[in-house]
Design a protein around this nucleic acid. Structure first.
Lengths: 159, 159
DNA sequence: GACAAGATGTGATGTTATAACAATAGGTGA
DNA sequence: TCACCTATTGTTATAACATCACATCTTGTC
């Protein structure tokens, strides 16, 4: 996987990273969840990378930090984060990305640039409402949604 | 993978299957595409199964019918069908399903029942519009979209 | 019928994900 | 404190999904 920033706009990354981590800790405390060392480190890794990482990329970094080196170690930590809204799974890329708005109720859509692999987390409240409405019409109860669009980010679309 | 019908409502399946196949043939003729034996058979297999099938499930059936038995045989045929709108890829299930409306311009959303694995193809014009609008706001050019919702189908939601 | 482009078949390999079980850590109540 | 239960972590092994590279054959074209 090549370089692939998690948002299209420039911003102060080290600051946002620390803030998100702190917010994640509050979320866990509040919900009675244990943000254990592996889990916390996994989230940090996603935040540091600041892009979508494959499970095996995460695993490599975890191993280097003295944690287990077998796939389940990474998958379990990632599953925990996804389960509790601290990270997202980007299925199109078979990858995971830190959630930039943990704790806030939000229905993210992912915009994936096919040229540079950048992934942006876009607000998708309206999209989600439309989907819920259509599902309700069919009697389907929506629990989780994945919205992923592939295309060109502003930078790559420019000539 | 267990039994998993492709729609929630009952209907005359053998009829819909033949109709869809005929429509697919017209689409290919019209676009100068070759619906070769493997490709046609692959589409038939998806239609017969009437649910989302993994590539290896398709491969098994293709092999039994005298076609090649190696993964690329199935993946190439499936990729062709997806590429030209004759089938859809359901990423959440790592599976493929025949498109029930080939030729018609449509932006499908998939409703996936977590209890029975049924997959319904729901019209998602409004959803797609909302997503396009949000993407445009960020300067992102959408080319392909996957909309997948996991939840409970009407049958499984009933007590 | 010679050629080019596309399609198919095969063997090998790469990548992603899970099963099954042992060992350990953390909290709870006797 | 200690026994106990549950959640978590670690390991081995393997399953499931997907692609590469290359040979062969088909199809359409000139």
């Amino acid at each position: 996987m090549t370089a692939a920033p998690l948002a299209f706009a420039e911003h102060d990354h080290s600051a946002c990273s620390g803030e998100v981590l702190a917010r994640a800790e509050r979320v866990c405390r509040g919900a009675g969840l244990r943000l254990t060392p592996v889990r916390r480190r996994t989230l940090e890794i996603l935040l540091e990378a600041h892009r979508a990482l494959g499970a095996y990329e995460v695993l490599e970094r975890l191993g280097a930090d003295g944690f287990g080196q077998q796939p389940p170690v990474a998958y379990r930590a990632l599953d925990f984060l996804v389960e509790h809204g601290l990270a997202h799974r980007v299925r199109r890329l078979n990858a995971f990305a830190a959630c930039m708005h943990p704790g806030e109720a939000h229905a993210p859509a992912f915009l994936i640039c096919r040229a540079c692999d950048a992934v942006a987390e876009a607000p998708a409240g309206a999209v989600r409402s439309a989907l819920d409405a259509e599902a309700a019409r069919l009697g389907f109860t929506v629990e989780r949604v994945s919205l992923e669009a592939v295309g060109l980010c502003p930078a790559c679309a420019a000539p």
